[in-house]
């Protein structure tokens, strides 16, 4: 039984390790960029727009970008999730955004948007890695 498949969707041979490392780094720094590089334009554009937008909404809702504090395990995990979005995180830190306003009614929503954007980008990075390895 044959299945419909475009050239971009067919599994390909694994790329060189250096290229894969660069691809994973790029995928983390700029959400969707690795998918664009791999010729998956539609997916790449959706990730490129949706994930940074989600991160921006999180900042707008007065969410906090958590510090990497080992003494507070939940804060530490939140900090890892925040950093998952890549470059937008560093831009936000440079602009002194993400201080968080705990008295705001939307504070927890903001945190949820910020962390979920980062965690979703981790999944996007894993997907790009799978494609580069020829698994998808």
């Amino acid at each position: 039984m044959s299945t419909k498949s475009t050239a971009a969707e067919r599994p390909r041979a694994a790329a060189e390790p250096g290229v894969i490392a660069l691809l994973v780094l790029l995928a983390w720094l700029i959400p969707g960029s690795a998918h664009l590089w791999q010729g998956r334009r539609q997916k790449g554009l959706v990730f490129l727009i949706a994930l940074p937008l989600m991160f921006l909404i999180g900042l707008w809702l007065h969410g906090r970008l958590f510090p990497l504090e080992m003494s507070e395990p939940l804060v530490f995990l939140g900090a890892i999730a925040d950093r998952g979005i890549g470059a937008p995180y560093f831009v936000a830190r440079l602009l002194d955004a993400g201080a968080g306003m705990v008295t705001s009614p939307s504070y927890e929503y903001g945190n949820t948007f910020l962390m979920t954007a980062g965690l979703l980008n981790f999944l996007v990075v894993l997907d790009a890695f799978d494609i580069a390895m020829g698994r998808k």
């Binding site: 990730f47 909404i57 939307s106 929503y109 954007a117």
Partner: peptide, 21 residues
């Protein structure tokens, strides 16, 4: 500050990314 609208917005983004992924 509408909790329901924020919930809908969150559900939209998560559904969008998962569906495309």
């Amino acid at each position: 500050t509408s909790h329901f609208l924020l919930l809908v917005l969150f559900a939209f983004f998560v559904s969008l990314v998962f569906a495309v992924l």
